[in-house]
Write a protein that binds this DNA or RNA. Structure first.
Length: 710
DNA sequence: TGGTGGGTCTTTTTT
DNA sequence: AGACCCACCA
C-alpha cells in the first residue's frame, strides 16, 4: 500500500516527513498537525525499508508514543513492533537496568517516586537535627523542590534561591546539607530518583564509548517530541544518541513551553541548529484544529507575552460563535453551570470529546461532586496518580520488600499498620535485621503479632519465586484485613483500585519492571480514553490533546495564574503560555469561567476574587460575556448598568499594562486600580506587587502593572 | 523513650 | 485533605 502524501499533508509537513537524512528541527504551532507529521514520518521511514527497531521515538508521555505508533501502524497496515518509544525517563530506566554494573549498582537499584524522595529529605533533615521547633521551616515538599530544581537547572542551590526563592535564603546552608545527605542516603540504599535516571544515563553515555557507539548504530532515526520542554541533560542525551550528524528530528513550539519549573530550557530549541550542523528548520504554521474565533483569542493571549513569539496562527475553519467568558457568582455555582454546559455539549458531541481544564488538581473537586450527583461519568488526568494512592503504595511496599529487603522506605510503609510500632521502632527492627540480631527480632515478633505475620508472609513469598501476578495475589489476600481496618469509610473504592493493579500485573513477567513502569507511567489501562466520559484534566496533562468543547475553570488571580507564580515575571510568563496551551486545546467551542468568589480552606469562608489578568486584558471583541444572575441563570451582558450586584463586575477590560513597568517600584503613596478605585500603598512586595488598602475594599495584593501611581 | 491523637496551618504544574 | 507540631500517655 502506498501512502498519499500529496493529499494528506501540506507542503511544510511533507518536507518534514520526507527529509529523513540529517538533523531537522520542526517548529510546530499549536494544532498545526505536529502529531500527524510524526506519524506520517514513522510510516514513511518504514515504507522506505527502515527496520522499525532502528527508530527511537522520545515523547513526553508513554501514552503519546503509543498513540503515534498505533496511528502509523494503521496507515501502514503493518506492525511497528520493535520501535523504541516512550519518555526520556523510561528509556533511561530501561537502558540503565541493562547496564547497572557500569554505574556502580552491582545489585541493581530501586526507582523511587516523589513521595519516597520527599520522605528521605525529611528523614535527612531530622537526622541532622535541622529546623527543630521552627514552625515556618520549609516543608519536605519544598526541600525536595530545591534539590531537584538545582539539579534540573544545573545551578547551585544558592543560585536557585537567589533567582526564584529569595525568601528561603536564610536556609541556604541547611538546603546544602540536606542535599548532601539525600545524595548519600540514595547511594547507601541503592535508590534512584527521577533526576538520577537522566543524569546516570548522561554519565553512562559519556563514559562508556562502546555502549554509545552501539546505541548510535542501533538508532538510525531519532525523533524527539515536545522539544521545548527538555532540559539541559536531556539535550545532552539526544546529542550522545544521535552523534553530531545523526538523523535526528526535534519537534516543538517555544510558545508552549510549560515545564520551566522542572528545568526545561527553551534555549534547547533555539540552539538546536547550532548543535546539529546542517540542520534544516521547518515551520508549521497553519492551524487545522481550531475555528478562527478561538485563534483570535489565543493570538491575543500571546500578544501580552513579553518574549514575543513569532506566531500568528490562522485557520480556514470558520465559525460565527465567539468564545464565551462566563462569570458565575461562586465556585459552587460554577460547578453547577459547568455541569449544565456539559449536558448542553452532550447533545452535540460525544462526552469524551469534551474537557474541563484547570490549573491544579484540587480545583476539580467541587465539579467531581456535582458530576457524580447527576450521574455523568468522568475521567480525570493529572493530580494524584494511580500509584500514589495510599492503598496502592501500601501493597507495592510489600512487593518491594520481596524484591529488596534493604528498602527502608518500604519497611516503614509495610509496618505502618502495626499498632505500637512507629518510625523509631521500625528503624530498630531494620537495624536488627541487618545485624542479624535474632534476639531482638524474636522479642518484637512476640510483642507484636502483626509484625510476625508480616515477616512470615514475606519469607514465604521470597522462598517461592513466582510471577508478579501471583505474588500480588498473595499480598492482596494478606492486605485485605489491613485495608478494611485502615480505610473503613471507603475501602470498597480502594479495593477496585487494587483489582486494577492485578489486571496490570498480569502483563508482566518481571517484578522490577512492573514497579518501574508504575512509577514512570502510572496505570497503562487508565490511559485509554473512556468512551462517553467527560475529561477533567490539569492543563499540563492536557498537553498535546484536543477536544471539540473545552471549558476552563477558576480563571481568577491566585488560581490561574497560580498564587506562587504571581511573584516573579518569568513565572507569570509561564502561566501565560499555560493559558495559551489550555485555550488552543479547543476545536469548536471554548468557554472560560471566572467565579466571583471561591472557597478558601484556610479561612473557611468564601472570598471575593479578582479575574485572571489573562481574562482582563482580552479585548471585548474576541468573546461574548455571560453573567450568572441571582436567579441562577445566565444572561448576556448588556452595557454596564448602575445596579450591578458587585463592583467586581463593573470592569471594562483593563488595557495593556502601563508601558512603564519599571517605574520606580519602591514608591509608596496613593494609587488607583480599575476595579477597586483609589487606595493607599502599604507595602511593596518583591518584585512587582503591592499591598494596597483600598477605600471601601480593604487590603489587597495587586501586581504593579495594574496600578496607576498618583 | 516512643506512640498516639488532637489542634493548627497550608495546597502548582510532572517524570 | 495532608502534613506537621505538641502534649499527653504507656
Amino acid at each position: 500500500m502506498s501512502i498519499d502524501f500529496e493529499n494528506e499533508l501540506n507542503e511544510a509537513q511533507r518536507e518534514a516527513v520526507t527529509t529523513t537524512e540529517g538533523p531537522v528541527l520542526v517548529i510546530a504551532g499549536a494544532g498545526s498537525g505536529k502529531t500527524r507529521t510524526i506519524v506520517y514520518r514513522l510510516a514513511h521511514l518504514v515504507q522506505m525499508g527502515v527496520d522499525p527497531s532502528q527508530i527511537l521515538l522520545l515523547t513526553f508521555t508513554r501514552k503519546a508514543a503509543q498513540e503515534m505508533l498505533q496511528r502509523a501502524e494503521s496507515i501502514l497496515g503493518r506492525s511497528l513492533h520493535g520501535t523504541s518509544g516512550g519518555t526520556f525517563h523510561s528509556f533511561a530506566y530501561a537502558t540503565l537496568r541493562q547496564n547497572a554494573m557500569d554505574i556502580g549498582f552491582d545489585n541493581g537499584f530501586t526507582l523511587m517516586d516523589r513521595a519516597d524522595s520527599e520522605n528521605i529529605c525529611k528523614e535527612v533533615k531530622d537526622t541532622l537535627k535541622l529546623g527543630k521547633g521552627d514552625r515556618s521551616y520549609p516543608r519536605k515538599n519544598t526541600l525536595l523542590d530545591m534539590v531537584t530544581k538545582s539539579r534540573n537547572k544545573e545551578l547551585t542551590i544558592e543560585a536557585i534561591l537567589e533567582r526564584e526563592a529569595y525568601h528561603l535564603s536564610p536556609y541556604l546552608d541547611d538546603f546544602n546539607e540536606i542535599a548532601d545527605g539525600y545524595r548519600q542516603f540514595k547511594r547507601e540504599h541503592a535508590l534512584v530518583d527521577y533526576d538520577d535516571l537522566l543524569f546516570l544515563l548522561d554519565e553512562l553515555l559519556e563514559k562508556n564509548e562502546p555502549l554509545r557507539n552501539q546505541l548510535q548504530t542501533r538508532y538510525k532515526y531519532i525523533m524527539v517530541d515536545e522539544y521545548q520542554d527538555t532540559n539541559l541533560v536531556q539535550a545532552r542525551i539526544v546529542k550522545y544518541l544521535a552523534g553530531t550528524k545523526g538523523n535526528v528530528m526535534a519537534v516543538g513550539d517555544d510558545a508552549q513551553s510549560i515545564y520551566a519549573f522542572r528545568g526545561a530550557n527553551v534555549a534547547n530549541i533555539l540552539e538546536y541548529p547550532k548543535i546539529f550542523e546542517g540542520c534544516k528548520v521547518i515551520r508549521l504554521e497553519q492551524n487545522y484544529r481550531s475555528v478562527q474565533p478561538i485563534l483570535d483569542l489565543t493570538n491575543e493571549i500571546l500578544k501580552g507575552a513579553t518574549t514575543k513569539f513569532d506566531k500568528n496562527l490562522y485557520s480556514e475553519l470558520k465559525s460565527d460563535r465567539l468564545p464565551r467568558v462566563v462569570y458565575p457568582l461562586s465556585d459552587q455555582t460554577q460547578a453547577r453551570l459547568v455541569v449544565d454546559q456539559i449536558l448542553d455539549f452532550k447533545r452535540k458531541y460525544m462526552l469524551h470529546d469534551v474537557a474541563v481544564l484547570f490549573r491544579a488538581g484540587y480545583q476539580s473537586f467541587p465539579l467531581e461532586v456535582a458530576l457524580t450527583r447527576v450521574g455523568i461519568d468522568y475521567q480525570k488526568f493529572g493530580g494524584i496518580r494511580f500509584h500514589e494512592a495510599a492503598h496502592i503504595k501500601d501493597v507495592l511496599s510489600y512487593l518491594r520488600l520481596v524484591l529488596n529487603p534493604h528498602d527502608l522506605l518500604a519497611w516503614q510503609r509495610a509496618m505502618d499498620h502495626i499498632k505500637g510500632v512507629g518510625p523509631k521502632t521500625v528503624a530498630k527492627i531494620y537495624k536488627a535485621m541487618h545485624t542479624d540480631d535474632e534476639k531482638y527480632l524474636a522479642k518484637m515478633m512476640k510483642k507484636h503479632d502483626p509484625l510476625k505475620e508480616l515477616l512470615v508472609e514475606l519469607n514465604k513469598l521470597r522462598s517461592t519465586p513466582a510471577r508478579p501476578a501471583s505474588v500480588l495475589e498473595s499480598v492482596l489476600a494478606f492486605y485485605q484485613p489491613i485495608l478494611i481496618e485502615k480505610y473503613p469509610d471507603d475501602y470498597p473504592k480502594r479495593q477496585a483500585g487494587l483489582e486494577q493493579l492485578s489486571q496490570i500485573a498480569v502483563n508482566y513477567t518481571d517484578m522490577e519492571l512492573l514497579l518501574g513502569d508504575l512509577s514512570l507511567d502510572g496505570d497503562p489501562e487508565e490511559e485509554k480514553r473512556k468512551e462517553n466520559a467527560v475529561v477533567l484534566s490539569t492543563v499540563h496533562s492536557a498537553k498535546g490533546l484536543e477536544w471539540s468543547g473545552v471549558i476552563i475553570i477558576d480563571l481568577v488571580e491566585d488560581r490561574f495564574p497560580s498564587r506562587k507564580a504571581m511573584q516573579r515575571a518569568e513565572d507569570l510568563e509561564e502561566e501565560r503560555r499555560l493559558m495559551y496551551v489550555a485555550c488552543t486545546r479547543a476545536k469548536e467551542q471554548l468557554m472560560l469561567f471566572v467565579p466571583s468568589s471561591v472557597f478558601n480552606r484556610a479561612s473557611g469562608m468564601s472570598e471575593p476574587t479578582l479575574p485572571s489578568p489573562f481574562i482582563m486584558e482580552l479585548p471585548e471583541t474576541v468573546y461574548d460575556r455571560l453573567n450568572e444572575s441571582y436567579g441562577g441563570g445566565l444572561e448576556q451582558r448588556r452595557r454596564p448598568a448602575a445596579s450591578r450586584p458587585s463592583p467586581v463586575f463593573e470592569d471594562d477590560p483593563i488595557e495593556e499594562p502601563p508601558s512603564n513597568p519599571k517605574a520606580s517600584p519602591k514608591k509608596l503613596g496613593v494609587c488607583e486600580h480599575k476595579i477597586y478605585g483609589k487606595g493607599k500603598i502599604i507595602a511593596y512586595i518583591e518584585p512587582n506587587k503591592y499591598r494596597v488598602n483600598f477605600f471601601g475594599f480593604g487590603l489587597k495584593v495587586i501586581i504593579g502593572d495594574y496600578l496607576k501611581f498618583l
